[in-house]
Design a protein around this nucleic acid. Structure first.
Length: 418
RNA sequence: GUGAGUGUAGCUCAAUCGGUAGAGCACUGGACUGUGGAUCCGGGGGUCGUGGGUUCGAACCCCAUCACUCACCCCA
């Protein structure tokens, strides 16, 4: 009986994993350059963390989360996003006493949705959270950090920013919007009428053609921001302009999680099909308090690693592979012992090398050398062991040059990072 | 949760009117007794997604079912 992987949960095979490693390496570098430090939190958290943090009414919590009872003791959930768990850890360990904190995380998230291009049940996010800074400067720095990360990866994505208001101005706006939508319900699609009650901001995003002209007349939040939100938003925009980060204001941009206030932003790419967002972020000034910590402002983003990989793939970027510098080929029984000894010595010197442990015909071993992408090959047997000399063959040019075996390590290039 | 499309070798795909399954790549062996990529010759590999139905006969037609893909919804 063949057993297949779980729907929407994918294997990342060796031929592709270089893409993930490259993304993570570049991201770690960029995060570190901006003062972010890594945090690792569990993949499982109490269900209540998400119910309270992300919001009971959100799709993520009420229909997409993997929830289970731990032997009847506690209701747990596989994390559907990274912010809630990070905030939990921030509070639990009293990190707020040490002033502003900038953290990042990398890892799998789980949502039980119907899979499609760029959307999976297990997916990977790189995310950052900055705690304790209410000033718009951190919003700007964080957004610019994403831009720098994309620049280093040669990824083009477009930035949209918005302000979703805060406790001072959003509730009043939502009521005004809801009342307006109810009054115009007759002209709207059934989805919109339903969303009017559940999530009125989403209505503005409706893609049904007949709704668009109606919604164009709807009241806009940006014109109704309170002074604090307006000042903040203006400063974010000014900061982006100062840094030369191109952006577009999208008053329809809404984040799906309840905790967002003020700044909301998204980086999108047209290489992704329908799920076009590769980064989604925003400010969550009330979340730490909601989860039992002291009032602490925060802002962060989540970046979809699969989506980033899709963009790189669509751009035709090759996958970086780790290749051995040299492949040791055995010509006879003496050679079979010799290659193991020489390989051990080379590896101690930091030189990546490989051999065909099956031994066998030279032709087969050369084929294996080619398959693993070795830059050089060297044949070792009784003759080489006796003379201490061998021929180092360049696999690309097929040229052979004599080498003294004792000097072999010096002739080859140490592996990166060795 | 809803809709559409697609399921044939490890991968990408053919198979005319319904006549009992093929190619390329990959793998493997040989041509080539100390040398890989090219060329040539050979070999292994199939429950035609699964179950049922129609038919003398089904990869092909019908029904059901499962899986995958894309889209809606929502989002990274």
């Amino acid at each position: 009986m063949k057993i297949n992987g779980v729907k929407g949960m994918n294997d990342i095979l060796p031929a592709q994993v270089g893409r993930w490693q490259e993304i993570e390496r570049v991201a770690r570098d960029v995060f570190a350059l901006h003062g972010y430090r890594e945090v690792r939190t569990p993949v499982v958290e109490p269900y209540a963390l998400y119910a309270r943090g992300v919001g009971e009414a959100t799709d993520i919590v009420n229909k997409e989360m993997y929830v289970f009872e731990d032997k009847g003791e506690e209701k747990l959930a596989l994390r559907p996003e990274g912010t809630a768990g990070t905030v939990r850890a921030f509070i639990e360990h009293g990190a707020y006493v040490e002033g502003p904190q900038k953290w990042f995380y990398v890892g799998p998230m789980f949502r039980r949705e119907r899979p499609q291009k760029g959307r999976y049940r297990q997916f990977h996010q790189l995310g950052v959270e900055a705690f304790g800074i209410a000033e718009p400067a951190i919003d700007v720095e964080q957004i610019a950090m994403v831009a720098e990360l994309f620049r280093r990866l040669s990824v083009t994505a477009s930035l949209q920013v918005n302000s979703v208001g805060d406790a001072a101005c959003r509730p009043a706006y939502l009521e005004e919007l809801r009342a307006w939508l109810r009054a115009h319900g007759g002209a709207l699609c059934s989805d919109c009428r339903e969303r009017t009650e559940r999530n009125p901001l989403r209505v503005l995003d409706c893609k049904v053609p007949t709704c668009q002209p109606v919604l164009a007349e709807a009241p806009g939040l940006l014109e109704r921001l309170c002074d604090g939100c307006r000042t903040h938003f203006d400063a974010v925009r000014q900061g982006l302009e100062d840094l030369g980060v191109p952006y577009r204001v999208n008053p329809r941009l809404v984040r799906g999680l309840d905790y967002y206030v003020r700044t909301a932003y998204e980086f999108t790419s047209d290489a992704l099909g329908s799920q076009s967002a590769v980064v989604g972020g925003g400010r969550y000034d009330g979340l730490v308090e909601t989860l039992g910590g002291p009032p602490t402002p925060g802002i962060g983003f989540g970046m979809g690693e699969e989506r980033l990989a899709l963009i790189l793939e669509a751009a035709g970027r090759p996958v970086a592979e780790n290749r051995p510098e040299v492949f040791l080929i055995s010509a006879d029984d003496v050679g079979r012992r010799e290659v193991l000894r020489r390989a051990a010595a080379l590896r101690r010197a930091g030189i990546a090398c490989d051999l065909d442990a099956r031994g066998g015909k030279l032709a087969r071993q050369f084929k294996q050398a080619e398959r693993v992408g070795a830059r050089f090959a060297i044949v070792l047997g009784a003759a080489e062991a006796a003379s201490g000399q061998a021929k180092l063959k360049d696999m690309a040019t097929r040229e052979e040059t004599p080498v003294v075996l004792a000097d072999l390590a010096g002739r080859l290039r140490p592996a990166a990072g060795a």
